[in-house]
Design a protein around this nucleic acid. Structure first.
Lengths: 351, 351
DNA sequence: ACCGATTTGGAAAGCGCTTTCAAAAGTAGC
DNA sequence: GCTACTTTTGAAAGCGCTTTCCAAATCGGT
């Protein structure tokens, strides 16, 4: 229980499997070759006589040698790590993205240093600084809050990949999975179901992503020759609570609507609750569509009709793009288009 | 767009703010002192004449010097990074924990290398290996799947903090935020509301945490002199889908019950949907209680009564414990007890 | 058996910082 | 002004690898 055995001075008894850390030099000695040879074998940077290779291999496994990545990084001048800054790790959406990113980078031998920016520009800037100081080889910014100019400047220092944003800069890759088509898809679906008065719960106004969703909504309306009414658009903040508030506001404004399109699933949840509280039923009285298709959306009551984009694919693509960038390749953009997961929160409007 | 300017050979023109990387040596030269002095100032490891301190400070800001953490790590033999392995980053629960851990460690100057184990023992083992190879100074295992013996062995190599588990080992800290009391609290609440036939949707059987929840349930029953019935306990897997399945199974088994306690919120969601599908209303026909109090639980319909533990505090505590361990202190355990968030998924049973 | 062309492999110089060691510079005390 | 200490400070030796440079070994040919 107590602290117990304290640091056992560096020079402990030498056993067959050394107590402390095994170095490449020890391996060299054990195998009767020079350190350079061991290094060469480790990295395959030169031909080495088969007999020595075997001896070294044996020594390595006997001593259980593991190259020290720190020393390696220093010598090579490469840290083999990339930074990921995400806004809110506790959102299921970003969590999934992060998981995919981590997986992809891990496979390629990179470690990921992840930090969250909490949607605050300052915090994000600090994260980036920290990552730069840590000498990451690249930075993936998931939905960055930083101004374009700053990102462009950043891209000069280190390869970056951006999601939900788009900038013009070398050694950078923007995966601006444009939300417009998805939003349009959702809105058109509602229109197809006979809805004409469709409210929209928007995301933060300064968010490109959120603007795209608004644009998609508008485009669908325009296409169907339905007049856009600003009164049917209420701002939200991408949280459940925000959706709840927005719906209440909408309801209070007495604007009539038969369907709601929320810019993300979480806001749709909140909106549905608000509706429920006022005795309005989904989808009988109001149809609701979300955006993101969070895992929980299939299990909520009623299961939510929502725009689905494989966030997993997004994450994987981000990781891949970063690896391409790091290897000096130009990432190939492969867009995965949005689909609509039709569930039970929507129904045709009966006249 | 295209690849454009390629690597610009190392020796570029020397400008006032060097193009490449500024080293401590350059600072030393600029300030007219020796590298050791700069290092001493940087680390405050010795007294240095005020005039030199100023000169060095000036040089540092002039050159915009940032010490290279890789070199520093190598020299000091400390990586200033800790590993965090989590099972499913895409779960809101773990996401929040991770965020808190990250925050705490970041403040203390550590970077976090995070990996996810996907609930698979093998994957987790691989993560740990990777972290060890990366020379992290400590590892935080959030709900580890590894067998005790292995953890004990691991603790010999590096300080570890465990959540949701408990092992006996030096230089380790288990934050087995015992779920038993929370589960008991939930069950007792249902009993207090007059329920006698309370079903339990369990988590994975091999999960200590999930066992605790079962135990808490049993204890509350026993305390109220209610016979425990194995038929009212169905296994789940901590996912929404699992809860849905479990509830269907329960319903099919024709066992009677007036309330359900799900071992986590996600399963409660799934269970509620299953109930809904069968035309059973929550809480009118069945009361439902969850465990975890996910952010969404307040916004689901009906808002879920659930056991709340500050997962944020848990994460912070984990980070703090790790820092204590790293500094050679013995972490003080500070349990935060569970509370019940009473919402609208439960109601008194009327006779 | 000898010579030039290849391979192999070791020595040694870093990578950028920390830290030990001992010399240089202050500070008192007489 | 000189001795005896007590700071300050610089030189240099690492930390554990990679990589360049060059000598040694090997090989093919005649």
């Amino acid at each position: 229980m107590a602290t117990g055995r304290k640091a056992t001075g560096k020079k402990a008894a030498a056993t067959s499997v050394p107590d402390g850390v095994v170095t490449l030099e020890m391996v060299a000695e054990e195998a009767g070759v020079s350190p350079s040879t061991v290094s060469r074998i480790l990295n395959g940077t030169a031909k080495v006589r088969e007999s020595k290779v075997r001896a070294v291999r044996a020594a390595i496994s006997k001593l259980q040698f593991q190259p020290n990545p720190v020393a390696r990084s220093l010598a090579r001048g490469r840290s083999m790590s990339v930074g990921v800054v995400i806004q809110a790790i506790d959102s299921p959406f970003y969590g999934e993205a992060l998981a995919a990113i981590e997986k992809g980078l891990f496979r390629a031998g990179y470690s990921v240093l992840f930090l969250s920016g909490h949607w605050r520009e300052d915090d994000e800037r600090r994260c980036v600084e920290h990552l730069l100081a840590r000498r990451v080889e690249g930075i993936i910014l998931v939905t960055s809050c930083l101004p374009d100019a700053e990102l462009v400047r950043l891209a000069k220092q280190v390869p970056i990949v951006l999601t939900g944003r788009s900038i013009e800069a070398e050694r950078s890759y923007s995966m601006d999975a444009d939300s417009t088509p998805g939003a349009r898809l959702a809105t058109e679906y509602l229109i197809g179901q006979g809805h004409r008065k469709i409210a929209f719960i928007a995301g933060p106004a300064d968010h490109p992503d959120s603007q795209q969703r608004l644009n998609g909504y508008k485009a669908a309306l325009a296409n169907a020759k339905i007049a856009y009414s600003a009164k049917l658009v209420v701002p939200g903040d991408y949280t459940d609570g925000g959706g709840h508030l927005a719906m209440n506001r909408l309801l209070d404004s007495k604007s009539e609507f038969t369907a709601v399109f929320a810019a993300n699933d979480q806001m749709a949840y909140g909106a549905m609750l608000a509706l429920h509280r006022r005795g309005l039923r989904v989808p009988q009285n109001v149809s609701v569509v979300g955006f993101d298709d969070l895992p929980t959306s299939s299990y909520i009551i009623p299961p939510l009709t929502t725009v689905h984009r494989s966030i997993n694919e997004l994450g994987e693509a981000a990781a891949e793009a970063m690896i391409d960038l790091l290897d000096g390749r130009v990432p190939v953009s492969k867009q995965s288009s949005a689909t609509l997961a039709i569930r039970e929160s929507t129904k045709p409007l009966r006249h």
